[in-house]
């Protein structure tokens, strides 16, 4: 018998489950309802509602905070796909506001200015699921230990340069392989070195993947970038500045969606890359004054 007494919301399964539903797809940063519509029309699986894309946050400086609820609600009213929004690292009050607004995923994001230099949000306390960035396996498992239901590489947001995302993905997947090949005695030392919860290290060693989906973010700006990170093990792609800072956002959005689905078919990547116009200009990461990936611990 089923009845309302046995109905459970906010379980780990339904929180991680939404991330499973996004696999293979593209999540696009949008700053207004018009961009959200472009994203949905192009086949995005979700949008990230924020006031400024990372490239503009980088340019403008100042403190970057949670977006105005009105803007988030306008985007929720415009599209039928999931709407995500960002809270500052450690700023659980911003996350509470986003949950009250009914956003579908909260990104506890290094793109915004951190609110707490020691603690991330206790994500188990929420019904809404969280995605967090990571640069390596230890960081990913610490976030999962705090309740994150989806991990993305941090990359270096707003640069249009995929090099940091590749570094982070490779670091995570290489360390997972190392865990798989370690013997039982070594796993305790690995957990200590990673500063990661032992049960999660043991789980990774046994399954060969994170307990939650692994997506890629940070610097993806062409269809070939999407193909690259998908082939490196990312199960879906976040694109921040890469679409709406390109010459032809509508075409770029469509092309990156195709590239994520058909990531292992170079003939498709070639076709969608042809005559696409220029990608966002981008930054060499060695020239950056502010490294966003260093935020969070």
């Amino acid at each position: 018998m089923s009845d309302s007494q046995t109905t459970r919301t906010g379980s780990t399964l339904v929180k991680r489950g939404l991330a499973d539903m996004l696999r293979g797809g593209v999540i696009m940063d949008v700053v207004n309802p018009e961009q959200a519509k472009v994203a949905e029309d192009a086949g995005a699986v979700a949008v990230m509602a924020l006031e400024r894309v990372p490239a503009d946050i980088r340019r403008d400086g100042g403190v970057a905070r949670m977006s105005d609820p009105q803007m988030i609600q306008e985007i929720q009213a415009t599209v039928t796909i999931p709407v995500m929004a960002k809270a500052r690292i450690g700023h659980f009050a911003e996350a509470q506001v986003l949950e009250a607004l009914g956003v579908d995923y909260v990104d506890e994001s290094e793109v915004l200015t951190p609110a707490d230099e020691e603690n991330h949000i206790d994500k188990w306390a929420f019904t809404v699921p969280f995605v967090c960035g990571a640069t390596n396996l230890g960081e990913a498992l610490r976030r999962i230990g705090e309740g994150a239901c989806l991990i993305r590489s941090k990359g270096e947001a707003g640069t249009g340069n995929v090099v940091e995302a590749v570094r982070h993905l490779r670091s995570i997947t290489a360390m997972i392989r190392r865990c798989q090949s370690a013997d039982a005695n070594e796993l305790y030392a690995i957990a200590k070195d990673l500063r990661a919860p032992l049960p999660l290290v043991l789980e990774v060693a046994e399954t060969g993947h994170l307990p939650v989906p692994l997506f890629c973010a940070g610097g993806i700006s062409t269809p070939a970038d999407a193909s690259l990170v998908r082939q490196l093990g990312a199960e879906a792609v976040f694109v921040g500045s890469g679409i709406f800072k390109s010459e032809d956002p509508v075409r770029m959005a469509h092309a990156i969606v195709e590239a994520s689905t058909h990531f292992d078919d170079p003939s498709v990547i070639a076709k969608v890359s042809t005559g696409l116009g220029s990608a966002m200009r981008g930054w060499e990461t060695s020239s950056l004054e502010q490294r966003l990936a260093e935020r969070g611990w």
Binding site: M1, S2, T6, T7, R8, T9, G10, S11, L13, V14, K15, G17, L18, M21, P82, E99, G102, V103, D104, Y105, T127, V128, P129
Partner: peptide
């Protein structure tokens, strides 16, 4: 998503299967 839920479901023969409903 915040209303997504798990609940037991009833099959025609009276047996139960787990249900996971996501948006």
């Amino acid at each position: 998503q915040i209303a997504s839920f798990e609940a037991p479901l009833e099959l025609a023969d009276g047996s139960s299967v787990p249900g996971v409903f996501i948006r």
